[in-house]
Design a protein around this nucleic acid. Sequence first.
DNA 1: ATTATTTTTTACCTTTTGGTCAATATTATA
DNA 2: TATAATATTGACCAAAAGGTAAAAAATAAT
Lengths: 215, 215
Amino acid sequence: MAEKRVRRTQQSVNREVLESRILRSAEIAFAAKGFSGASMERIAEISKISKQNLIYYFPNKDLLYKRVLKEILDIWIEKLSFLENHGDTPEAVIRNYVREKMRLSRLYPNGSKVFAHEIISGAPVLKEYLVSHLKPQFDRDVALVKSWIDKGLIDDIDPEHLFFTIWAATQTYADFSIQMEVLLGKTSLQQADFERAENAVTDFVVRALGAKKNS
Amino acid sequence: MAEKRVRRTQQSVNREVLESRILRSAEIAFAAKGFSGASMERIAEISKISKQNLIYYFPNKDLLYKRVLKEILDIWIEKLSFLENHGDTPEAVIRNYVREKMRLSRLYPNGSKVFAHEIISGAPVLKEYLVSHLKPQFDRDVALVKSWIDKGLIDDIDPEHLFFTIWAATQTYADFSIQMEVLLGKTSLQQADFERAENAVTDFVVRALGAKKNS
DNA sequence: ATTATTTTTTACCTTTTGGTCAATATTATA
DNA sequence: TATAATATTGACCAAAAGGTAAAAAATAAT
């Protein structure tokens, strides 16, 4: 199986490296100024190539934008299937979920910001995706939480809005980081801040569920 | 006192009406596409005047943007002083606070979105304001919550992150409304949805504080 | 009614931006 | 080494966007 592998010339390797560098640069630019505010020139500049060269790899801005969105969504989908967040108890599942979402805010703040700009703008590009991919998963996850309630494992909370609150409370550490930096009097959020935030948010959620505070 | 009032000619009234119509239009445009994505042409179009006429009232885009931001911030400041949110108990204060913030998300979704775009973009315009106005108020409010904890009125939660969570959980109903609409299977969020959301979020927060659920 | 002031329109200008096209340089393959 | 394929650059373009300047129209004050 390892024998029939794809040919990896120096060029093809370079290409992959450069393409992902461009995608990271584009992510930075889109995060900072949204779709309209990020120019191809600027993205090229961050990528340290010429604009024409950028266009050689990504023939137009819309396509580049969609690729950046796709990248972050792929990561999120892979890491955030609530149902597959194995845990013995509802509390364990929720704790893992919140922790993972916080981790994603810390590791991919720019992707999160691009997504936020897109959604705030009315999801012109992603609306279809939300309907076809996110809603089915959401419905399943909500059903799971409802079954917990029915079984008396957690208090009778509002499942849909529980998810909205968890998403908002975790994503805000990526999207609104500048506000927190100012309010906490720091130049940037550090690992320790994220750990404290993770503990705080996890505890809030777990307590709201009517579960015990620690393990 | 009523005698020496400002002269209100037909023109000055028209001007005020038109200026606020422009500001509302600009808010819509900035909310939909952020600062860079909203063109003066488009704002003029929504205002139903010519671009040059728009420029007569607001000589440049930056100024218009700042006015739109100032408008929403003035509203927020006026309505959201935590300390002045009178209530007998911490729980009552928090309930009022969350309720008021939800109300602002419902009444001024566009202003909220403009603010969100700005903060996500690194607050290029508002950073100074955050330092000079928001932080002092934040520090006071955090101190108040800490005093509640010291007095044993609420559980030992993390005050700073409590505020971050409240803000995120409430603001998301303005900023991410499209996502909720899709997930709840509605074309737009109605009064009833906001009421349910308000109850859900308020309960989450109150329960997280370690207070009783109802009054 | 006439003058002064405010508002709106017309015409234009410059810069930015997304993108094309052809030429050149570089790397891989026969 | 010659040829084919890939990558990069240079010159250019049309449309969009922010904005200026002056004339024309509408309204207010004397």
